[in-house]
């Protein structure tokens, strides 16, 4: 099976951080980010320039030949939202594990206790998962879960509704009930930069309606949530994400994860994946 992993766009830095030259990795290869009069320049260690896209507060690049534009999130463009650069956190796990964890609801009461979930409200009701053929994306909809403090702007417990979307192999978008504006969705994303197959840099980004919190408070809230996940992610075994059913037995609540793994296999994405049944 040919591997399509390099032919996608990946986040490698923040657009707001133009003054700090950055050396980093993408697919085990060293790349450098600099900024000159013409804008951002991304180069491989041999000096070869790589293509760039500036979107969602981040700089994106690719080592391969993407035959498609980077996805869009039209909802994020509606006026009045705060666009929040959360900054990156490095994690010693497969990039795919980081995305899969973001798609999981069942861990909320145990890892994000009293914030995104609380015992005894641990049951994940049945929801809908599909691979949308036209756009080639994974979607989970009609996800409902009890949350004690769903967002910085939420007071008290509410039933929160979510939609999850995987528009690219290492990117996930969460649409979530917006406490101050019930008709809109808050948007929380996880953009993952694959450093190696077992090491990644995670760039959360948000487009929120929240007139009560400061930017620092919104950033802190999301960093707190993600750091609660980090130690769990670093302890998952095997480090790579198994795409074939084996030792791991999924439950009803894992339908999104099952669809995500199936979809990765279908599009021939193997970087960070374990292809042999465990």
């Amino acid at each position: 099976m040919s591997d399509s992993s390099k032919d996608h766009w990946y986040p490698v830095g923040l657009l707001s951080d133009i003054y700090t030259p950055r050396q980093t990795l993408l697919f085990d290869q060293e790349i450098s980010l600099t900024h000159d009069d013409t804008g951002f320049v991304v180069k491989k260690s041999g000096g070869v320039s790589l293509p760039t896209i500036e979107r969602f507060g981040h700089l994106w690049t690719s080592l391969g030949q993407p035959d498609h534009d980077l996805f869009v999130i039209p909802e994020a463009d509606t006026p009045g939202r705060h666009l929040v650069d959360v900054g990156s956190v490095k994690v010693k796990c497969s990039p795919l594990r980081a995305v899969e964890n973001f798609l999981d609801i069942a861990h909320f009461p145990f890892i994000h206790t009293d914030i995104l979930g609380a015992e005894p409200h641990t049951e994940v009701d049945r929801y809908k998962v599909e691979i949308r053929e036209g756009v080639n994306e994974v979607w989970a909809t009609k996800v409902k879960f009890f949350q004690p403090q769903a967002a910085k702007s939420a007071e008290g417990g509410i039933i929160t509704e979510y939609m999850y979307r995987v528009p690219a192999p290492t990117c996930a978008v969460l649409y979530k009930t917006c406490p101050p504006r019930p008709k809109e969705w808050d948007i929380i994303t996880l953009f993952v930069q694959p450093l190696t197959e077992e090491w990644c840099e995670v760039w959360p980004w948000m487009a929120l309606y929240d007139d009560d919190s400061t930017m620092a408070e919104m950033v802190s809230f999301q960093q707190l949530i993600f750091m609660q996940d980090r130690s769990i992610l670093e302890n998952q075994i095997p480090l790579k994400l198994p795409l074939d059913p084996g030792m791991e037995t999924p439950t009803q609540a894992d339908m999104t994860s099952v669809a995500y793994r199936r979809w990765l296999k279908r599009i021939g994405y193997s970087y960070g994946a374990q292809m042999v049944a465990a």
């Binding site: 923040l14 650069d85 900054g87 930017m215 620092a216 408070e217």
Partner: peptide, 10 residues
């Protein structure tokens, strides 16, 4: 008083 230490170096 939250301070945006990372990424904004506030």
């Amino acid at each position: 008083q939250a301070v945006n230490f990372h990424p904004a170096r506030e």
